[in-house]
Simulated assay, not measured.
Amino acid sequence: MKKKILLPIFATFMIFSGVGMGSNNTAQAASVSELTATASKYIGVPYVYGGTTASGLDCSGFTQLVFKQLGYDLNRTAASQYKQGSAVSKSDLQPGDLVFFNTTGKVASHVGISLGGNKFVHAGTSTGVTEASLNSSYWAKRYNGAKRVASFGESNKVVAAVSSVEKEEVKDSAIDFTIYASRGEVAIQLAKTLGLNTSDTNSPFTDIKSSSKYAGAATALYKLGVFTGDEGKFNPASPLTRAQMAKVLVKAFDLKMKQDTLKFTDVPTSHWAHNDISILASNGITVGKGDGTFGTNDNVMLKHLTAFINRLQ
């Protein structure tokens, strides 16, 4: 992607109005999906004052790193980033807008990246990189404005086509698979990441025909013992919980325990996935949800699936 230098407010205005900026306003923009995937892969990275790498990030180091990977230059500190771009009202926030907060008595002492609506992602001092809501009591009273330093194109989402038969599996829970990861999508992503041979489409599962796009991946993972099915079915259009995901990842990547430091309040030693979640945590693949829990029964979101896989590569 061509490198883009973020401009002062007056220059940005000329780009938006098409005045005198030549070919710069025809440069290809990153998509919303690229922005979200890039920001989400750092979820769980710990907060480190002055940190600018994936081993530790502070708030402006996080925003700078994400934008750099998308081809844009941001200033180093939250205060200097606040001087870039053009002001945006809270009601007009779009994915990629920088959101600023007064947390220390300064106009812009903290910065995050809007995901659209009230959601944003940031590197918090006590949570590390995590998602948060502008409507929470803490952030709502500290919100101090937003800046648009770049515009992101429409997301080109690759959404699995779900047949009427597959929809029957999840009709009661009304899962939105543009947000959540289906078992079929997990299989495809894992097979791709592991470099598995997916040419054998003779599926051992009764609900996956050889013509299904999931057949090769599901069969390859079955051979590895990653997915064994439920009474002969794979249930490709059903969601996967975070606890189930832990078990799948540990098996798929043959992860071993490094040091059991698990402290999640919702994962007692008696929990069936305690060992698998402990292994993920000991390998730095997860730090939980930021509130002391792992979210064992929460369905895995596509962006979290991407984050987990990126940390395993």
Rank of each mutant, 00 (worst) to 15 (best):
I179F: 05
L134G: 06
T38F: 00
N197S: 14
S55W: 05
A140K: 15
G56K: 05
S86Y: 13
T293V: 09
V267I: 15
G124M: 03
S137N: 07
Y42V: 08
S163M: 07
K171P: 00
P95H: 02
T293A: 08
T241Q: 06
A79I: 02
V149G: 04
T38I: 01
V149S: 11
F205M: 11
D207M: 07
A146D: 09
Y143E: 08
A78I: 03
A146G: 05
L249P: 10
A37K: 13
L7H: 13
R242K: 14
G153C: 02
S282H: 08
F67T: 00
Q244S: 10
K247I: 14
G153A: 15
V267L: 10
S114G: 08
D254Y: 02
A174C: 00
F67W: 04
Y180C: 11
N75R: 15
S23D: 14
A54C: 02
L194F: 09
H110V: 02
A191S: 14
V186N: 08
S40P: 01
S33W: 04
G61I: 02
K3D: 06
S80L: 11
K213I: 15
N297W: 00
A215K: 02
D260F: 09
Q313I: 12
T219D: 04
A29V: 13
L70V: 02
V300A: 06
D172I: 09
T12V: 07
D230L: 13
D176N: 15
L98E: 00
L98N: 03
A132I: 01
L70C: 11
Y180D: 15
G22Q: 12
K233I: 07
S278F: 10
L221K: 12
T296G: 13
K68Y: 08
G117P: 02
A160G: 11
V170Q: 15
V159A: 01
K303D: 12
I279H: 05
A252P: 11
V300F: 01
L224W: 06
D97T: 05
I279P: 00
A218W: 04
S17N: 14
G232Y: 02
V159G: 00
A161D: 13
M245W: 01
L93A: 04
I9W: 12
F16V: 11
W139V: 04
G295R: 08
